[in-house]
Amino acid sequence: MLLKHSAVQRLALSMGISMLLASSPVTANGPIGDHVNQLQTHLPTYAQEVDWLIGKVDGMVGTYEAKGKGGVNSEELIEHWEAVDFHAAIETNYVPVYALIWQSLFGVKDGIAKEKPVAVIRQEQQKLEQSLWQALGAVKLAAQYQQQGKLAKRGNDNQLTEPNQILAEIKHRLDRVVAKAAEKLPQQATDIVHNTYLNLFEGLEGRLIAEDAELVESLEKDFNVTLPLALKNQSDVEEIRKVVSTMQVKLDKASTLLQQAQSQSRDVF
């Protein structure tokens, strides 16, 4: 399924932020290859990998339908996904869809493990395919940005100086929290939450208190209680995504407030 025009526009808008500020991704799946800095060149490979993955999953579900749980090794689903270059391409460029891929991948895998009806597993398979196509669209868009020199190279958050930049980075890292939860790596997700709070949000909250103390208090609770608790309890990924989405809305409000405050602050000299 190809992305519709409006979906591409929405994607472009959100990627326009996350790509330019993307920083130091830490993957659980080994080093990121140089290919992510030459996306355009590797687009044909990515497309082949997506086709291959979809075929592999379809074959596995078909075997399950014919032979039952004993006929398939569902662990191979994860191995196939981790083996392809496309994995890193989407992880470094559009984390929300990356999280969806993991979520539906585990949907298929766990469905087989729990011997759920084929119809249920086919629904998860369909979600996985949609996510993979959406991801390929996102990577193609990222390749265009990269060609135009608008895509930041990975691994440097030293340029984050303005509050709105820092808040955008916080939102990006929260997307990674969802991705790690979807990967069933709750400790890594929790570490990202704690580091993001200590290294990025805590430095901003002082200025934000005078603008909207209740907003800061609410975000403090989200960072320190609500989200870590949801991760600790290994809540459903949709619940974690909901917590993160709520936080991101609050962070958008914070960004607006801080920009207003900054425009009104006095000069130093």
């Binding site: 509050p163 820092i166 901003l204 801080l258 130093v268 000299f269």
Partner: peptide, 26 residues
């Protein structure tokens, strides 16, 4: 820290001292 206020101080110092090449690691 301080939500960009230290950055504002640094920007002001830079502006006042054009011959200063201030490199910052954050």
């Amino acid at each position: 820290g301080e939500g960009g206020l230290y950055e504002k101080v640094l920007d002001a110092i830079r502006e006042r001292n054009p011959a200063l090449d201030l490199r910052i690691r954050r």
